Amino acid sequence: MQTSAKNLFTALRERRSIYGISNASPVSDQRIQDIIEETVKHTPSAFNNQTTRIVLLLGEQHNRLWDITTEVLQATVPAETFASTREKMNGFRNGYGTVLYFEDQYIIESYQNKFPTYREQFPIWSQHTNGMHQLVIWMALEAEGLGVNLQHYNPLIDERVRTAWDLPESWKLIAQMPFGKPTASAGEKQFSPLQERIKVFK
């Protein structure tokens, strides 16, 4: 896969939550798929158990996800406050695509049985690897000129998502990442003092 002109830390610094996104992309669908395939292949996982699963939704399939999410939320959010929720969902639907992140519980459980000493840790470690996948894909999409944000409407939409795309029962939904060509920039980011967050011993 070709590499982006941006280096690692430039992409990290410029990775932001962009909520103003449009139904356009500066790169091809194949390029987006290549990014996801490279990420899934090379991102580390505990014991190399490779628990993360990804679903890429483009076009009408992307729209379908946010239609489902809107329907589910309409049944749970009070009617008098739903207008703002619908507007938020429309903002995500206006994007070009969505990356869905899952963890395969079957693999996690198999490693719990195989290595009982670490039984309690495998679910935690699976969240670690999922987070790494999220960050790598986020940075890579940003480096290609896409606006990206991360959402968590699980577990409310889990069953509908699983049914809509006929996904395995063992795939647990972790996060949803809508993306598209940016239509607005992110606000200024605030940073806590690094001396309060890092300790160095020599």
Rank of each mutant, 00 (worst) to 15 (best):
D29H: 14
L194K: 09
R119T: 06
T81H: 15
V40A: 05
I18N: 07
R31N: 11
A46T: 07
S110W: 01
F122G: 00
L12Y: 03
P116C: 06
F201Q: 02
F102I: 05
F9W: 12
Y106A: 05
F9G: 00
A143C: 03
A175I: 15
T69D: 07
I21H: 04
T76K: 15
E87Y: 01
Q74L: 15
T3S: 01
G91E: 09
E159I: 04
Q176L: 03
P182H: 03
R197Q: 06
N23T: 12
L135C: 09
K199R: 07
T81V: 15
L58A: 05
E38I: 12
Q127M: 14
K181W: 09
R15Y: 13
A46F: 05
S4R: 00
Q33M: 13
P168E: 04
F201R: 07
N149G: 05
G59P: 09
K172P: 07
K202T: 11
A83C: 04
Q61F: 04
D29N: 15
Y106E: 07
L156A: 15
A46C: 10
W66H: 08
V72S: 08
W165H: 08
A164E: 12
S17L: 07
T98D: 03
T76V: 13
W66F: 14
R86C: 13
G187A: 06
R31P: 07
G180S: 09
H42F: 12
E109G: 01
G20N: 13
K88R: 15
L100D: 11
L8H: 12
S28V: 13
K172H: 13
N149R: 08
G91I: 07
H42I: 03
F9I: 09
T69F: 11
A140W: 02
Q105E: 09
P116L: 09
T81K: 15
K181V: 05
N154R: 08
L167E: 04
R93D: 05
F179L: 12
G20A: 14
N130M: 08
F92S: 04
I174T: 10
M89Y: 04
L56C: 04
E103I: 06
Q50E: 09
A79W: 11
G147Y: 14
K41D: 09
T70W: 03
K189Q: 06
D34Q: 14
P78L: 07
N7M: 00
N63H: 12
R13P: 00
R53V: 02
V99G: 03
G131S: 10
F191W: 07
K202F: 09
D166V: 08
N23V: 13
S110G: 00
K6G: 00
G180R: 06
V72R: 14
A175M: 14
R160I: 04
Y106R: 06
I54N: 06
V72L: 10
F9M: 11
V40W: 00
K114N: 00
L58G: 08
A5Q: 02
E109Q: 09
E188D: 10
A79Y: 10
R162W: 06
I35P: 11
P155I: 11
P26S: 00
H62W: 05
